[in-house]
């Protein structure tokens, strides 16, 4: 279980998070919703140790991962799919996957399993990541994170700029991970893209959690979403 407890963080002198708390259990999909600049991406970066905390703690199965240096965090089994994919563009598809595999010393078996989810990547195996199409790049970013064999998966706007067929594929992968008992934290702008698959939704506003609601409640009363996100 991933638990955030009152985390605060700042970019230099500018505070971005003012006490964010939530938890994600194994086999659960938690969606973070909020307007631009609410602190969704900052929360993700804080979990990965890329944004130093000024207060609060982050625990994974009881271990305080916010004390670890950033490069130790993924070794605890956290797979990160950053906003804008952030592939190593000059590296080939194979090399990008290798970066993921090296995190926890996984090998050909894991790679084969991940590639069955994204057969297209097998065709592009020796191609430079920067030459892939947008959809293929998102597949690769996802595959790279899955090569960690994560127990927690963080996705930051994975459907941004994708065609509907690609969005379906990403959604299938996310529900597949849930079925494998992975804890999933998902940042999204598009409410309808997540409401169907999320278990709970956390609303983030100005670096604070306004509310955490069961997705069932939101599905039943859509006006709540409009009140929080204002769409």
């Amino acid at each position: 279980m991933l638990e955030l407890d009152g985390i605060q963080a700042a970019y230099g002198a500018a505070p971005v998070l003012h006490g964010v708390s939530f938890s994600v259990a194994r086999g659960e999909i938690l969606c973070l919703l909020g307007r631009n600049g609410a602190g969704k991406t900052s929360t993700m970066k804080a979990i990965m140790g890329l944004l130093p905390l000024t207060a609060g703690t982050i625990r994974l199965d009881g271990e305080e991962i916010s004390r670890l240096p950033a490069h130790e965090v993924p070794k605890r089994g956290i797979g990160y799919i950053p906003q804008g994919r952030r592939l190593f563009s000059e590296l080939t598809v194979a090399e990008n996957l290798e970066v993921g595999l090296m995190v926890r010393g996984h090998g050909a078996e894991t790679r084969a399993r991940v590639l069955t989810m994204f057969p297209r990547l097998r065709e592009r195996f020796r191609q430079r990541a920067g030459t892939l199409s947008g959809g293929e790049q998102q597949m690769l970013a996802t595959a790279r994170a899955l090569c960690i064999e994560p127990s927690v998966l963080l996705l930051d706007e994975p459907t941004e700029g994708l065609q509907p067929s690609m969005i379906d594929l990403i959604r299938d992968v996310i529900t597949g991970m849930k079925a494998e008992n992975v804890a999933v934290a998902l940042v999204e702008q598009r409410v309808d893209a997540v409401l169907a698959i999320a278990d709970r939704v956390a609303f983030l506003e100005n670096g604070r959690i306004r509310d955490v609601l069961d997705a069932d409640v939101l599905r039943a009363d859509h006006s709540l979403v409009e009140r929080y996100v204002g769409v």
């Binding site: 952030r86 090296m102 995190v103």
Partner: peptide
């Protein structure tokens, strides 16, 4: 791979240990 990945994107390199 590690050296080139670090050259291309330091932050993402950190996120992959």
């Amino acid at each position: 791979i590690v050296l080139r990945a670090t050259q291309l994107d330091r932050e993402t390199a950190l996120a992959f240990a």
